[in-house]
């Protein structure tokens, strides 16, 4: 097993990650030594009850949070101990986030929301110089998610599914290597959720996008290549096709 993992050289690895939060006077452990390696192009879902630490694991992998113990490796080099500026850069360039509550900025139109990561990436002058290019990139992505007719709308004027697709477009516009999805269907009805899952599967298949998805819904989780179950801060069991199937898919 170790041999295979070594061979495929995982894209991102959370190595023996522990994290506890201070709740009142008590340290409450959330993660207790979790190891999760995700290969390039893999679609992994992390499943678990509320409070099992799955969101925290995602945040630590996406550098929104830091582990108390353990390391996060990206392409073999440690990234969790980098300085703030480098972490900001990585979040902007390498990771794309989607959240359960979409988290679009309410003051901006859909197009502006999608352009935000690129606005953050470029300075004012850089943005003005590349205005057209950035706009075209955002328009292209919005077309991919099927929202090209909603450009000028505020998030409050969109439906839940549209907002989540907008959030996916925003996560993808910076051409990230890893998409981190935190309960992307958690707030949607089954049909709309299925549409979102279809979109994620298509992105994974067509663009070889690496996706780590957190969910508590077994039906949703099973659509991934591999499922990891988190119980009380520990990896309980790997899914049926955990080790073999992704490699097959990768080599295929």
């Amino acid at each position: 097993m170790a041999e295979i993992l070594k061979m495929t050289q995982p894209l991102i690895t959370a190595e023996a990650v522990s994290r506890s939060y201070l709740k009142g006077q008590h340290q409450v452990p959330v993660l207790r030594g979790v190891r999760l390696a995700v290969a390039r192009g893999e679609f992994v879902s992390v499943i678990g009850q509320s409070g099992s630490g799955k969101s925290t694991l995602l945040h630590i992998m996406g550098l929104l949070d830091s582990p108390d113990v353990g390391e996060v490796l990206l392409g073999g080099s440690r990234i969790d101990n980098l300085n703030q500026a480098a972490r900001d850069q990585l979040r902007n360039h390498v990771f794309g986030f989607i959240f359960q509550f979409y988290h679009l900025l309410p003051e901006l139109s859909l197009l502006e929301n999608v352009m935000t990561p690129l606005m953050i990436r470029h300075s004012i002058f850089g943005f003005i110089k590349r205005r057209r290019e950035i706009r075209d990139a955002a328009l292209g992505i919005l077309q991919q998610v099927g929202l090209e007719h909603r450009l000028k709308h505020r998030p409050s004027e969109l439906s839940g599914g549209e907002m989540q697709r907008g959030a996916i477009a925003r996560a993808l516009v910076g051409r990230p290597e890893i998409l981190l999805a935190d309960e992307p269907t958690g707030n949607l009805d089954a049909e709309t959720g299925a549409g979102i899952m279809e979109l994620l599967n298509r992105l994974n298949h067509d663009q070889k996008l690496t996706i780590v998805m957190v969910t508590h819904d077994n039906a949703i989780a099973s659509q991934a290549h591999r499922t990891v179950q988190l119980v009380q801060g520990r990896i309980q069991a790997a899914g049926k096709d955990a080790e073999t199937d992704p490699q097959q898919r990768l080599t295929a």
């Binding site: 900001d88 990585l90 979040r91 986030f97 988290h103 900025l105 953050i120 990436r121 925003r170 910076g174």
Partner: peptide, 16 residues
């Protein structure tokens, strides 16, 4: 507060 969190998750720096 939430919007600030979103911006940070998108890579905005504290000084930004």
């Amino acid at each position: 507060t939430r919007d600030i969190g979103i911006l940070k998750s998108l890579g905005a720096s504290s000084s930004g």
